[in-house]
């Protein structure tokens, strides 16, 4: 009840209402609320400057969210959105009975976890070691070059990986040259190697980029800590382990939590570009599955259901991680 009364009284303060009643009323106390229409008419330029983009947001961002309804219909493009046959959760039931779906889920989580573990480890190790390099110019040069691969597209990245790993590519040359293998390995045509190749490609392309944030955190560590450690006779390695690493721990934890939330959103570019018919079973990730079935086979509703499933898992992962973060936050000692 109290709420509705305040709403009513709020309405008498509503400039829209006021304007209709007339100009005889006392001016409102809160100057910010004053003359909505007056302000709006003075801000015509601002309204014109944002209006087209509000329309854009609604069309290109909000209508696709509304498109989720397709997952509960038997969507046929020739009919309108609301003239479709509603089928409830049928597509989700079908989805959970498809063996291919579990294959895609396994591949997504497998490559996601590998990428998370090795991506984080390589970035932290690289940042830790680069932070210790004493030749300042060399250090800057190395860092600048290290994130170059991040800016080239995955098409180029995939081309590089395939070229390097080809039968007559440099990796096979080195391995044969060292006598580690007798004949060149067909890296790209071995399904068992595919997850590993994707992970290595990811590490090659993103380590320098991912290290930036750790290096920024390391730059903020109090130099007095190192001085004190030196006085106590700690070696460089011990300083890295006992000062640098604990100092960036909060950053590591935040980034880990964010990436665990995104475990299922690993994208599909790498898998699509590096994959081929021979390794297709290991390259099929959820997005590719949605693409193949949803668009390739015109099963739009089914594809939408896959997308919704992914979003739901993603939200659950983020919520779990948030809880986990709270727990860790309480237990954080230093």
């Amino acid at each position: 009840m109290g709420k509705s009364i305040s709403e009513v009284s709020g309405q008498s303060n509503n400039p829209l209402f006021k304007n209709q009643v007339g100009m005889n009323k006392k001016p409102p106390i809160n100057p910010k609320k004053k003359g909505f229409w007056k302000r709006a008419s003075r801000q015509k330029a601002l309204i014109l400057m944002s209006f087209p983009f509000v329309i854009w947001l609604i069309v290109f961002k909000y209508i696709p969210i509304g498109g989720w309804l397709m997952a509960f219909q038997d969507y046929k493009p020739q009919f309108g959105m609301f003239d479709q046959e509603w089928v409830g959760l049928q597509h989700f039931k079908d989805l959970f009975q498809e063996p291919m779906f579990y294959q895609a889920l396994e591949n997504t989580l497998g490559m996601g976890i590998l990428g998370l573990v090795f991506g984080t480890l390589s970035a932290i190790t690289f940042a830790l070691l680069l932070n210790e390099v004493r030749l300042i110019t060399f250090k800057k040069l190395t860092q600048t070059i290290s994130y170059l691969p991040h800016f080239v597209s995955w098409v180029i990245g995939a081309n590089i990986v395939i070229t390097m790993l080809a039968q007559e590519g440099v990796i096979n040359n080195i391995l044969v040259g060292l006598g580690l293998i007798d004949s060149p390995i067909g890296f790209m045509s071995n399904p068992d190697l595919f997850w590993g190749i994707v992970t290595v490609a990811d590490v090659w392309k993103e380590t320098g980029w991912n290290a930036i944030i750790y290096l920024a955190a390391m730059a903020g560590v109090d130099p007095q800590l190192y001085e004190a450690a030196k006085v106590d006779g700690a070696s460089r390695l011990r300083q890295m382990w006992h000062i640098t690493l604990p100092s960036i721990r909060p950053v590591i934890i935040v980034l880990l939590i964010l990436s665990i939330g995104n475990l299922i959103n690993i994208g599909f570019e790498k898998q699509m570009l590096l994959g081929n018919n021979v390794v297709a079973d290991k390259a099929l990730v959820i997005d590719l599955y949605a693409l193949d079935y949803g668009i390739g086979m015109f099963r739009y509703s089914f594809g939408t259901a896959i997308g919704i499933f992914k979003s739901v898992i993603s939200v659950i992962l983020i919520l779990i991680c948030n809880q986990f973060a709270k727990k860790i936050g309480e237990g954080r000692v230093f």
Binding site: F36, G67, G294
Partner: peptide
């Protein structure tokens, strides 16, 4: 006057997206 509303509309898009198929249909 519409600062909050437009800001809200924009920020939501950072967290929710329609996904591959609905965007393709659009």
């Amino acid at each position: 006057v519409f600062n909050k509303q437009v800001g809200f509309l924009l920020v939501i898009t950072m967290f929710v997206s329609g996904g591959l198929i609905p965007e393709y249909m659009l």
